[in-house]
Amino acid sequence: MPLRFVASLLLVSLGASLGWGAADSKLMVALLPKSKGNAYFISCKAGSERAARDLGVELLFDGPVDSNAAKQNEIVENWITLGVDVIAVAAENREGISTALRKARSQGIQVVTFDADAMPDARSFFVNQATPQGIGEALMDEAARLCGGEGEFAIICATLTAGNQREWQREIERRRQDRYPGMKLVGVRPCDDLKDRAQSEATALMSAHPKLRLIMAICSPAVPGAAEAVKQAGKKGAVRVVGLGLPNENRRYVKEGVTDTVILWKTEDLGYLTVQAAVALARGELKPGASSFKAGSLGEFRVEGDNILLGKPFLFTRENIDQFDF
């Protein structure tokens, strides 16, 4: 019995050494979103897959189901042991992920970040679509425009603890103080990334604050949730809705005029640009100090320091939303 056991063990290790092995020599790019169920990152994925096809590289796209810093670290460490060539990360926790990313770099794996940056010494480039500042300003500007610069508004966020949500709220507040002192924030409510809960919260906010002029939904499930609440309350036009979301989830509300504006970076382009930059970095075509970068079918992008800039956010409105399908 023990002999047979040892024999099978030997056989197994032999199999392992022959095993899967270096069958394909394609470059392997691994993309880590904050949460892979989020529509925002699903459309990122579509763009990154297009870039991977264009470039002939293999793409891994995996992340936590919920936004979870601990799971992100585990996934990066899995990829390090798998030996991928480039890792691209949207960091949930700046310091937390950086430890793992430094480890990857020390083993010869190239690292870029997208969507949310890690510590500068833990990656080569940051594909910068959406500085928190950019998001905060775009949201606050649009809100103020719709309200004519004054009135009460409320925010619905994902959870009270999510890092990016907090950062955006800080930027929104900064912009409000600088430019729109007439706007007043009367409440911040979490919806746990649940559309149904966002709807209940929006209902409560509207009844508690009769002078509410606008609801700002800063996580993607909250935008249709808030819009449905406004519609059911019969307050279309009286209470405006703006938020960060995807065209497909909000199309009907935008066309009905309940939701005024959905703000988003062209997330598909973000995914495409990220993979292009990652591959160029791995192939040595993109070097520190570059001032511009040509990304396949999207053309030239500006590079500032170690930030590759995607450009301004896009505003989906009634007029243009039908041109997009994601």
Partner: peptide, 17 residues
């Protein structure tokens, strides 16, 4: 403290939810 709580539409909506 908050009589606005008792409005028909929001309450109806809350109960339906």
């Amino acid at each position: 403290r908050a009589p606005a709580f008792f409005q028909l539409q929001p309450l109806l909506s809350l109960l339906a939810r």
